[in-house]
């Protein structure tokens, strides 16, 4: 199935000049990445290899609350600037949507400020370190864990 870009979307593609564009489905909060056909062809072998991996698409994927996701995007957007501000008092930063709520020495201090003092909901704020990140906070990082794949010793919860 083919979709045709609107004029506004066409302008966005031109502005981004080949960079991937994140497209969010507001019904599910799931993010899709829009790239050019030639970029996709270069990635196709990797995608084929990935489909043979043991993990299956999670029904939990994309379950980041909308408010947290918006706040994460603002944090990611501002991170280069934030890094230049880092100090002992500015180790952590809080966002609510597009707004930077403030900085703190600890995440606990910022959570208390956001939730208990200012009455923000926990699913609309995002608090992260003023430290570099390899990936945006909403993307999946791959982790190695050489643990023993033995049976979990606790009975499964039935709900």
């Amino acid at each position: 199935m083919d979709f045709y870009l609107t004029d506004e979307q066409h302008r966005l593609v031109e502005t981004e000049a080949g960079r991937p564009i994140h497209v969010i489905d507001p019904a599910t909060d799931r993010t899709y990445v829009f790239i050019a056909q030639e970029q996709f062809e270069r990635l196709r072998p990797l995608l084929s290899a990935g489909s043979q991996a043991s993990h299956s698409p999670s029904k939990l994927a994309g379950a980041i609350p909308h408010g947290i996701r918006r706040s994460q995007e603002a944090y990611w957007r501002d991170l280069p600037e934030l890094l230049s501000l880092k100090s002992p008092e500015y180790r952590w930063v809080a966002y609510r949507g597009d707004d930077r709520v403030g900085f703190g020495r600890t995440s606990a201090e910022l959570y208390a400020q956001c939730v208990h003092q200012r009455g923000f909901k926990k699913d609309e704020i995002y608090i992260d370190r003023v430290e570099p990140r390899v990936l945006p906070p909403w993307e999946a990082e791959e982790i190695d864990s050489p643990f023993d794949h033995g049976e979990v010793s606790v009975p499964r919860h039935s709900s």
């Binding site: 993990h55 939990l60 980041i64 699913d123 999946a140 791959e142």
Partner: peptide, 19 residues
């Protein structure tokens, strides 16, 4: 609250806010 997905040993999990 879910903060994002992650892959551990190629298994997709969610990261949650907690102390």
């Amino acid at each position: 609250e879910v903060l994002g997905p992650m892959l551990i040993n190629r298994q997709e999990l969610n990261r949650h806010a907690a102390d």
